[in-house]
Simulated scan of single mutants.
Amino acid sequence: MPPQGDRRHSPRVELYQRIVAAIDDGTFPPGAKLPSEPALAAQLGISRPALREVLILLQEDGVITRRQGSGSTVNQPPPPPGLERLLPVEALLGAGDVRCRRLAVEWEEPTDFSGYHLRLAPSARTCFWETVVEADGVPACFAHEWSADEATLRAVDPSLVTVLDVPSTASAPPTTMLAAFLASAAHLAMTARSTLGATTLGKERGEAISRPPEAPALLITQTVSALGQPLLAAKYLFPAGSPLLYLTPRR
């Protein structure tokens, strides 16, 4: 179960967010070089070792490119709201051996996050899935996904309820909830709103993949809707070092 409410961010995560925000607002536009490490550390009011840690993470996440002797260059701004095409995590992680491992499935009362994004009443019930998505045998993403309440799902398409209760088998291995929704109701014109940020793994997720709880992670939050109704709310956490995401531009 993911913790409810907001978790205080570490200084490293906050620094990551400050630099990404500066890229997003045009302070450091695509193709521009970041100031030298001494100059940038002084500008941000932090130590050079702390800055160097975050620059390494930004490079791992594909935000910047660092080259010895030539500094750091901005690759591209963070994705705009809404990933360019609505694709499940399994497709975003590329063409390698991508598999899902389910950690939790249960119907529960809304959390602050799911209640807000899915417009759920406090008495409603939402189906929660926690899934680890592995790329070539290495944990690449924690998927925390919540469905709309059963009445909303049935009103949009009854098959959306059906897939929530289907157990995983050898012939039907586990997937993310979004992948299941897209496969069961392919005729629906589903759209999404997404945001990009940073967080840390936390104790439970860190233990699941033998990483420290303070390990940084890229965070994508997403709300998927159809026919004017939110159907799914999700948090996708990609630990530092995960494969780059493959996004297909809108046509």
Rank of each mutant, 00 (worst) to 15 (best):
Q4C: 09
Q4H: 14
S10M: 08
I23N: 00
T27K: 11
K33W: 12
P35G: 07
S36Q: 11
E37V: 13
P38T: 13
A50D: 08
R52H: 14
R52D: 14
L57K: 03
T65P: 04
G71A: 10
P78F: 11
P80D: 08
P80Y: 08
P80N: 10
V89E: 04
R102M: 11
V105T: 14
W107M: 10
T111R: 03
S114N: 03
Y116F: 12
H117T: 05
L118A: 03
R119H: 14
A124P: 01
W129E: 00
T131K: 01
V133D: 00
E134S: 08
V138W: 11
P139M: 08
C141T: 02
L153H: 03
V156G: 02
V163A: 03
V166S: 11
P167K: 04
S168G: 10
P173F: 03
T175Y: 01
T175P: 02
A189T: 13
S194W: 03
L196K: 08
E204N: 15
A208N: 06
A208H: 03
A208Y: 02
L218T: 04
L219C: 06
L219P: 02
L219F: 04
I220T: 05
T223H: 08
T223M: 07
V224G: 00
Q229F: 14
P230F: 00
F238N: 01
P239R: 01
T248H: 14
R251F: 13
